[in-house]
Simulated scan of single mutants.
Amino acid sequence: MQSVNTRLTSLLGAATPSKLREELLQARASVSDLGNKPLPIGCGFIGWILDSQEEQYKEVVDTAIESGVRAIWVSFGNDLPRWINYIRGSPAYAVHKPLIFAQVTSLEEAIKAVKDWKVDVLVVQGNESGGHGSATAPSTMVLLSEVLAALPKDSAPPVLAAGGIANGTQAAAYLTAGASGAVLGTRFLLTPESPYSDAQKSVLLGATSLQTVRSLAFDDARGTNSWPAGIDGRGIRNKIVGDVETGADAQTLQERFRAAAQAGDPDYLLVWSGQGISLVNDIKPAKVGNI
């Protein structure tokens, strides 16, 4: 199995069935000669967000399946098995069966995902990853090695490595180590297609791995602090983190964050980034062969 990039990067906290259907129709129209074949992308769902408005998000999940996406990716929830069962029990799933990806951050979770959840693809995310992940996860290579050693060789699903991967050389190293593919995230923020602003991209272009930091400060600032225990986010260190370290409470932090956003203050930009950012120094289109 070659390196896979099938995740539709979209924060589904504000998604509606109609909005998602519209976006997926646009995606389908952009692929020539696709017809009624499955759409060669996936939809990623964050578990705790699904839990927050269950009935709404059941419709959103159904819409993704009905739209013919090739994969459904789930992560960061306290009850992911329930959502995996919901996907498989959806009437739309009887017609079109997308692959179910589960992202895990520990060996224990990986074993459950394979043995109990019966996922189609396992994504092991190491501590180097940008955006959200486990504060206590091992490095990507260590976690991958642990998982591959623990899973049965003849019946395990494909295992993808995620976290800090920014180029083809790194991806090849993980393939050599036994991964079935590699997942890149931060690399795709520095593309023309990325929704990141020019200011955010400028921060990334000038950043190094030493400037990234794992912290709950970013979520405290924007008021999205309902992540499962042990999950935080890795981004570029700035005044958001500095304010928390000097004792600013959540209300003060949010007020400063909102004011800075209105003023366009780059010192308070929220810029997610993995440690592989040191290896990314240009903006390239998101197409095959560019890493």
Score class of each variant (00 low, 15 high):
Pro98His: 06
Leu80Met: 10
Thr63Lys: 06
Tyr93Cys: 10
Glu66Phe: 06
Tyr93Phe: 14
Ala64Lys: 02
Asn78Glu: 15
Ser67His: 06
Trp83Asp: 12
Ser90His: 07
Ile72Gly: 05
Thr63Ser: 00
Glu66Arg: 01
Tyr93Asp: 11
Ser67Ala: 04
Phe76Cys: 14
Tyr86Phe: 12
Pro81Cys: 04
Gly68Val: 07
Pro81Tyr: 05
Val74Leu: 15
Asn78Ile: 14
Arg70Leu: 15
Tyr86Met: 09
Val69Leu: 05
Arg82Cys: 10
Asp62Met: 09
Arg70Tyr: 13
Gly77Tyr: 14
Gly77Gln: 12
Pro81Phe: 00
Tyr86Trp: 13
Tyr86Cys: 11
Ile65Asn: 13
Tyr86His: 02
Thr63Asn: 13
His96Ala: 13
Gly77Cys: 15
Ile84Phe: 05
Tyr86Pro: 08
Val95Ala: 10
Ser75Cys: 14
Ser90Phe: 00
Gly68Asn: 05
Ala64Leu: 07
Ala92Ile: 03
Asp79His: 11
Thr63Pro: 01
Ile65Cys: 14
His96Thr: 12
Ala71Met: 08
Ser67Trp: 06
Gly68Leu: 00
Pro81Leu: 04
Trp83Ile: 11
Arg82Met: 10
Leu80Ile: 03
Glu66Thr: 00
Thr63Asp: 11
Ile72Glu: 11
Arg70Gln: 15
Ile65Arg: 10
Asp62Arg: 03
Glu66Ile: 02
Ser75Pro: 04
Glu66Gln: 04
Glu66Leu: 03
Pro91His: 08
Ile87Asp: 10
Glu66Val: 12
Lys97Pro: 00
His96Tyr: 13
Ala64Asp: 08
Ser67Leu: 08
Thr63Ala: 15
Asn78Thr: 15
Gly77Val: 15
Ser67Phe: 05
Pro81Lys: 06
Ile87Arg: 12
Asn78Phe: 06
Ala64Trp: 05
Trp83Gly: 00
Tyr86Asn: 01
Asp79Cys: 13
Ala92Val: 02
Ile72Met: 11
Pro81His: 05
Val69Ser: 08
Ile65Thr: 12
Ile72Phe: 13
Gly89Lys: 09
Val95Asp: 04
Tyr86Ala: 04
Ile84Gly: 03
Ala71Lys: 09
Val69Lys: 07
Asp79Ala: 09
Lys97Phe: 07
Ile72Pro: 01
Ala92Pro: 09
Ala92Cys: 10
Asn78Val: 14
Arg82Trp: 15
Glu66Lys: 02
Thr63Gly: 06
Gly68Pro: 07
Lys97Gln: 13
Leu80Ser: 13
Ser75Thr: 07
His96Ile: 13
Arg82Gln: 14
Asp62Ile: 02
Glu66Pro: 00
Arg70Glu: 15
Asp62Pro: 01
Asp62Glu: 01
Ser90Gly: 07
Arg70Gly: 14
Ala64Ile: 02
Trp73Tyr: 11
Arg82Ala: 02
Arg88Glu: 09
Glu66His: 05
Gly77Thr: 09
Asn85Glu: 14
Tyr93Ile: 12
Gly68Tyr: 04
Gly89Tyr: 01
Ile84Asn: 05
Val95Arg: 09
Gly68Trp: 05
Asp79Phe: 15
Lys97Ser: 03
Thr63Val: 08
Thr63Ile: 07
Ala71Ser: 04
Ser67Tyr: 04
Pro98Phe: 07
Val74His: 12
Val95Cys: 08
